[in-house]
């Protein structure tokens, strides 16, 4: 029983439109799980099903091995993409209200809020009305309210949109800290690069279908194709390039260096070995740069979508 959450063959239709088409995902306990896909792919619908805001037409969702039910609401913390606060309500009162809705007692909620407000250095906002706060300030409060009841599962839908870089970093650190304390996190975003450093598992959703699913590292390993970026310092770059083109599959590469060496992207046959390439290159020129090309989430996504579309 390693999965905190399992969605099995979830289908959700809105009229003629199918928002989720037979989607299954497993979210391992203690992982940071990236739910990726472009806008409108169905991510938010899946998240709303997990939060029991809507219900699937068919398929099931298991939380800790049990079918999703009312008691699980208190075990989930959800920061929606469309998030806000009551404008004319005071910050403290509002946070207390939202925490109590999640099942905390008033006194417990007050204690924890005090801790978090001090931790994020927002203690003096307690008596302010939300309309007096900036957008970034309001988002800190939303974050606190999301994690306050110490849920087993945290769901963030586009968490960093609207945050300035400092606050985004702060929140990122807090999320990692929560993970260390044992929470499981689901991230939903269409900005693939923002999850690269956080997520260890991902699922790609495209046009209502899950097209990829697994450990980020495994996926990357599967998607790398023995390609290397090299920087070569040589007297005669044109000649060198011609020589290499006869022997390997060569393309231009773009990466930043301080010199003006020849920058190439070389793809080897599957059987070939990186050491052989490095040995060959160092005979011909001074190797200033040698890196295996690991596809990022964005590349993987684009490749996968293309592959899916060509397969029909």
């Amino acid at each position: 029983m390693n999965n905190l959450l399992e969605a099995k063959n979830v289908v959700k239709r809105f009229g003629d439109f199918t928002a989720l088409n037979d989607v299954s995902v497993n979210v391992p306990k203690g992982s940071i799980f990236g739910l990726l896909g472009p806008n409108g792919a169905g991510k938010t619908t899946l998240i709303r099903i997990i939060n029991q805001i809507t219900y699937p037409d068919s398929g099931s969702v298991l939380f800790n091995g049990e079918p999703l039910q009312a008691k699980h609401i208190a075990m989930i913390g959800y920061l929606p993409e469309e998030r806000g606060l009551y404008k004319s309500m005071k910050v403290g009162e509002q946070a207390l209200y939202l925490a109590q809705l999640k099942g905390l007692s008033r006194s417990e909620a007050r204690k924890r809020l005090k801790y978090w407000f001090e931790r994020l250095e927002i203690g003096d906002w307690w008596g302010k009305k939300v309309q007096e706060l900036s957008k970034g300030m309001a988002q800190k409060i939303q974050f606190v309210v999301t994690v306050l009841h110490q849920p087993e599962l945290l769901i963030f839908d586009e968490p960093f949109s609207g945050f300035d870089p400092i606050n985004a970093n702060l929140i990122k650190d807090e999320i990692l800290e929560l993970k260390n304390q044992g929470a499981t996190v689901i991230f939903s975003t269409h900005r693939m690069e923002s999850v690269e450093e956080l997520c260890d598992h991902i699922a790609l959703i495209h046009k209502s279908k899950k097209i990829l699913h697994g450990k980020l590292n495994d996926i990357k390993r599967n998607y790398k194709n023995n390609t290397y970026e090299v920087g070569l310092e040589s007297e005669n770059k044109i000649r060198l390039r011609q020589e290499l083109e006869q022997k390997f599959n060569v393309a231009d590469a773009h990466f930043k260096t301080v010199g003006d060496e020849l920058k190439l992207r070389i793809q080897l046959e599957n059987s070939d070995n990186a050491n052989d390439l490095l040995g060959y290159l160092s005979d011909k020129a001074v190797v200033s740069h040698f890196v295996e090309v690991i596809p990022d989430a964005n590349d993987i996504f684009i490749q996968t979508v293309k592959k899916n579309e060509s397969h029909g």
């Binding site: 609401i73 959800y78 469309e82 606060l85 009551y86 939202l98 809705l101």
Partner: peptide, 10 residues
């Protein structure tokens, strides 16, 4: 004010 989704997740 976009608070609605926060509330109805509870």
């Amino acid at each position: 004010s976009r608070i609605i989704e926060v509330i109805i997740s509870s």
